[in-house]
Amino acid sequence: MDNNIWLQMKDYFAENMGDFLIAVKEHLEVSLIALLIAIIIGISCGYVCFKYKKMESKIIPFFQVLRVIPSLAILLLLIPIMGTGIKSAIIALVLLSVPPVLMNTVVGIKEVPGFLIESAYGMGMTERQVFWKVQLPLALPLIFTGIKIATIEIIASATLAAKIGSGGIGEIIFTGLGLNRTDLLVIGGITVGLMTILASFIIELINRMLMRYKYLK
């Protein structure tokens, strides 16, 4: 039986390498687009929350609720509104991944110690300079954590998004479930698993490179 699976997997790659690579490419494309949009929305909403305290009490609870809703429900609730396809998949992925980026941006900016801000103002920085030179750079480590969580969420949910027609590795897994083909399940499962682990590793690496000062002795 075990040997059988390896054989089947070898056959799959021999015959369907092209399809497999297309699925990987689709998955990465959808994920990357969604991630970029989520980062832009998340950080700018975070900035708005920080700048206008009144908005914070409106924006944060909305995303807090959004964060609680099961990802599958968000994906499928868009079908009646937007139909199936890549566009609705991307919108769903963005909705799912904005909360971690946003929340971490807000917390990150808030956690910058007051005396550093005072120091910056005391030196004669304008409000804008304090934000760009002190608050944002010091919030970056937490923002990166948010981006990492968002990335994992996106790659995982992009797998489910195959159900609403966005293609990607999810297609391989769901085909495997439908046809009861273990080889497809294992190939799909391992590929997505490796993707998320690799992606979070890369983000951690970038984080460490940019935030070198945090890891010095």
Binding site: I5, I152, I155, A156, S157, T159, L160, G170, I173, G176, L177, T182, L185, V186, G188, G189, I190, T191, V192, G193, T196, I197, S200
Partner: peptide, 17 residues
């Protein structure tokens, strides 16, 4: 944390065998 990073549908798929 590594397990948590693996999407649930992938983990389901890997456990089915």
């Amino acid at each position: 944390s590594v397990i948590y990073a693996v999407p649930s549908i992938a983990l389901f798929a890997l456990l089915i065998p």
